[in-house]
């Protein structure tokens, strides 16, 4: 299936990935080839089939709502690009 440049721009925005304008036609062509493989699925009748999300059809286990983890904020924030007083810093989002 053909993927146009606009679709690439939309998907790159949805995925929050900056792509260079020069790369867009190549990405469009490669995405098109991948989706071509996916389209072979359409020919198969799957009306009677339940979608399979877990290979063993296991249900999501639940646990008691107890605190089980220690506070590792400092360790986790040691690898953050920018932190201050325990907070992750990003560019200003509210004027």
């Amino acid at each position: 299936m053909a993927v146009d440049n606009k679709t690439v721009i939309d998907m790159a925005h949805l995925a929050r990935i900056a792509v260079s304008e020069d790369d867009i036609p190549k990405i469009a062509s490669q995405m098109g080839k991948v989706l071509e493989i996916a389209e072979k699925m359409a020919a198969v009748d799957t009306d009677h089939l339940e979608p399979m999300a877990h290979p063993l059809d296991a249900a999501q286990p639940l646990r008691v709502d107890d605190v089980t983890e220690a506070d590792l904020r400092e360790a986790f924030q040691a690898v953050a690009p920018s932190v201050d007083k325990g907070l992750y810093l990003v560019p200003k989002v509210i004027e």
Binding site: V3, T7, V8, M11, A12, L14, A15, I17, V19, I27, Q30, M31, V34, L35
Partner: peptide
């Protein structure tokens, strides 16, 4: 990037 964008699609 390509797989992420295909996934988003």
């Amino acid at each position: 990037q390509r797989r992420i964008m295909v996934g988003a699609y």
